[in-house]
């Protein structure tokens, strides 16, 4: 099979690392070769964060380059737009419709762009998720990233059982129940 390229983008602290680990463990369970590239250190302090996951029969390169992404999972809409050119023309974007102002906006150097969702939707197959609302509704705002992942699950070829098993074994034990609920809410969107 051809290698599947997934890119996860967001703001440092939004949980891109946990998400990429879930995707990595899924690929292992399904018997694929897999490589994941993470970002640690400085950029995690509220900066723009990018993680790559590649799985298939045999994977060499650990990163995904511009124009090669099959599925873009974005935890913040400005970040989705920043990396939109990485997505293949027939690729899919799953975007959490949340706004987090970068410091360049907070300090008045520039404005947060209007109409981001319209731009993304007009250029790629897009699923817009209000994950924070869903996560708050189940009393677990921190699980918003798993809601997004649930929504993204429909664009990937794993079974729901595989997803749930891997989430159980990857997230911190105390959070399993809430995260499974978050996943199902996202999946049913």
């Amino acid at each position: 099979m051809a290698t599947t390229n997934i890119m996860i983008v967001g703001v440092g602290g939004q949980g891109t690392l946990l998400t990429s680990r879930i995707l990595g463990n899924l690929a292992v369970v399904a018997g694929y070769d897999v490589k994941i590239s993470e970002v640690h250190g400085l950029s995690q302090r509220g900066g723009s964060v990018v993680t790559y996951v590649r799985y298939g029969e045999s994977v060499a390169e650990p990163i995904v380059e511009a124009g090669q992404v099959d599925v873009l999972i974005a935890f913040e809409r400005l970040e989705a737009l920043r990396y939109l050119h990485y997505v293949k023309k027939d690729g899919t974007v799953i975007v959490n419709n949340q706004r987090i102002d970068p410091i360049t906006v907070v300090s008045g150097q520039t404005e947060y762009p209007e109409g981001i969702i319209d731009t993304i939707t007009s250029r790629r197959k897009t699923l817009v998720v209000d994950a924070m609302d869903v996560a708050k509704a189940i009393g677990s705002p921190k699980s918003f990233n798993i809601v997004v992942l649930g929504a993204a699950a429909k664009s990937m070829d794993y079974t729901v059982e595989q997803w749930e098993d891997v989430i159980k074994n990857t997230v911190p034990p105390k959070t399993v129940e809430k995260n499974l609920e978050a996943f199902r809410k996202g999946y049913d969107l």
């Binding site: 400085l42 900066g47 124009g67 400005l78 970068p102 410091i103 731009t119």
Partner: peptide, 18 residues
């Protein structure tokens, strides 16, 4: 020739103090 779509011109998001 690696034909790349142009990157969107969006505000930078450098890391910040929490």
């Amino acid at each position: 020739a690696v034909e790349l779509e142009e990157a969107a011109n969006v505000p930078a998001r450098p890391p910040v103090l929490c």
